[in-house]
């Protein structure tokens, strides 16, 4: 390390809105890692940033759209997928990526998720699953594990959690994977794959919220949460997503689905082309 540090630019700086840094996320939060993986994927794919649109919802990770040096939109709670659908269909040349949280995408926005997956809209959805509503101070959500302590489950959570990869696969996504914030290389590779895939691709990035989830659930620091990811993760590519429920001692990660199916945009284009020949 030298004084040169001050002059040298971070290699990914061009992907970020530098003037908005530092981001609002707490120390040790997984959101920054997801942002890091995302921009590295963009870098390696050499995508023209002018054609990338990042759409996010509400919550801690929702702020991500403000940090990427692309066109971006920070929607209302739960609606980024619906907004992204409009963007993609109105301007198909754009790469539209939704990055949002488990509460945003699967509680308030669950309906949009399953229907966009069913339609196979050509967008990529990255879910930062931190098991909690972080922005509002740590209430339980649709992915909070049974028995977990949150501010609204003071006697332990009695709701069953969604298995997001199973939900995505069952809804019709053509690409489904799950990694944790510790799997920075595989997560990045997965994002690259998803971005190149035609149709609805979904990546669950299991993320740590040390501040208001870990601390109250026997993981005192960000590092201890990362160690949990390390110890509990088991890579099982193309295993049955139905059997990939996250439990305290096992997080099955890997790619679960990678299939081909015509996207909504393609079917729409074909329908219009057919119509045109009839009109003549």
């Amino acid at each position: 390390m030298t004084e040169k540090s001050l002059e040298l630019k971070h290699p990914y700086e061009r992907f970020l809105r530098k003037e908005r840094m530092p981001h609002i996320w707490c120390e040790g939060c997984g959101n920054g890692i997801i942002l890091n993986c995302f921009v590295r994927a963009l870098d390696e794919l050499n995508i023209d940033l002018n054609n990338v649109v990042v759409v996010s919802g509400i919550g801690c990770i929702g702020r991500i759209s403000g940090y990427t040096n692309t066109d971006s939109f920070h929607t209302t709670h739960g609606r980024p997928i619906a907004f992204a659908t409009g963007v993609k269909l109105a301007k198909p040349k754009l790469k539209v990526v939704v990055i949002s949280g488990d509460g945003d995408l699967f509680a308030i926005g669950g309906n949009h998720f399953i229907h966009a997956a069913r339609r196979n809209v050509d967008i990529t959805v990255i879910c930062a699953n931190n098991f909690i509503y972080g922005m509002t101070g740590g209430q339980y959500g649709p992915t909070t594990p049974l028995e977990a302590w949150t501010t609204t489950t003071p006697y332990g959570n009695i709701e069953h959690a969604f298995n997001l990869v199973h939900l995505a696969a069952a809804s019709g996504a053509v690409y489904v994977s799950r990694w944790t914030a510790l799997h920075v290389r595989r997560l990045k590779e997965s994002i690259k794959k998803a971005l190149q895939k035609e149709g609805f691709s979904f990546i669950e990035a299991v993320s740590q919220c040390p501040e208001i989830y870990g601390r109250y659930n026997k993981m005192k620091t960000a590092i201890s949460m990362m160690k949990w990811f390390k110890e509990a993760s088991e890579v099982r590519n193309f295993s049955d997503p139905a059997k990939a429920e996250i439990s305290p001692d096992k997080i099955i990660v890997g790619e679960f689905v990678d299939i081909e199916k015509p996207s909504y945009g393609r079917l729409l284009r074909e329908m219009k082309a057919k119509l045109k020949t009839k009109q003549k």
Binding site: V55, T76, A82, T85, G86, A90, K91
Partner: peptide, 15 residues
């Protein structure tokens, strides 16, 4: 809800 959100998205895409 999805309808109006998609409308906003399309409008920002210039349509």
């Amino acid at each position: 809800i999805g309808s109006i959100a998609a409308v906003l998205g399309a409008s920002y895409a210039g349509v």
